[in-house]
């Protein structure tokens, strides 16, 4: 038995703790990261609301089946599903000012992720609308409900219920994209953590940022898991 080795391991462990979990650095930067946390939450909530609303609106417009309009919707949806969100953000932030259309980072991130979420949501809502059996339309129409009445009272409630599991997962995935805001100077969690790390020359703020993301998203992912089983459609 070499008495030196446990002691050496102890020092390594302490060094690791000091590097990644330095209490003093963490305490210094905790308030800033908390602010970043709130900004992330704010950004995420705005994206979820506007993205889902726009997606639903587009799906409803598409159900009128006006040919040229639908081509346009399908193209826009495909575009925002195919492009990496960071490319869209970079394009809005660095590309548009060239023609005098500049947004600040927060607006850019919100707009880009809203469009991405709306594209995915439109596709999911539309699939849900199509999946409601034709008989439901016929039954409602036979009682005198009009097109919009049928859509609103009979078809959409069923379509939305069917689409809750895929929609939840997609929404979670896209709200995680708020971290991309760090690239365009949005002071959200990652960005605050990174600048704090640079300032203190210690990665503990990054650890703190990671913990903030765990606090924010682990419950959301678990809730998503639960929703997936809860809303499995039974007929």
């Amino acid at each position: 038995m070499n008495p030196a080795s446990p002691a050496a391991a102890m020092t390594n462990w302490q060094a690791f703790l000091f590097t990644f979990f330095d209490a003093k650095t963490m305490a210094t930067y905790a308030p800033k990261i908390a602010q970043g946390f709130l900004l992330t939450v704010e950004l995420a909530i705005l994206i979820v609301i506007s993205g889902l609303a726009l997606g639903l609106f587009l799906a409803v417009v598409r159900s009128f089946r006006i040919r040229p309009l639908n081509w346009l919707i399908v193209f826009a949806v495909d575009l925002f599903r195919a492009l990496p969100p960071l490319v869209i953000i970079v394009f809005f932030y660095f590309g548009l000012p060239v023609v005098g259309l500049g947004f600040e980072g927060f607006t850019t991130t919100w707009l880009a992720l809203t469009l991405v979420l709306a594209a995915f949501a439109e596709e999911i809502f539309w699939a849900g609308i199509l999946a409601v059996p034709k008989g439901q339309w016929e039954a409602a129409r036979s009682t005198g409900l009009g097109f919009l009445g049928t859509l609103g009272w009979v078809v959409l409630p069923q379509a939305i219920r069917m689409t809750i599991p895929p929609l939840t997962n997609r929404t979670i995935a896209i709200t995680k994209g708020t971290a991309l805001g760090s690239v365009v100077a949005v002071a959200e969690i990652l960005s605050t953590a990174q600048s704090a790390m640079a300032e203190s020359a210690n990665p503990s703020p990054l650890t703190l940022g990671a913990i903030a993301y765990i606090i924010l998203f682990v419950p959301v992912v678990i809730a998503g898991r639960w929703i997936e089983t809860r809303f499995a459609w039974k007929r």
Binding site: G177, A179, L190, G209, I214
Partner: peptide, 15 residues
Amino acid sequence: RAFPPLVLLVFIYAG
């Protein structure tokens, strides 16, 4: 799945 991939990436690369 909870970690934004960019956070993971920065953590690994810078941490």
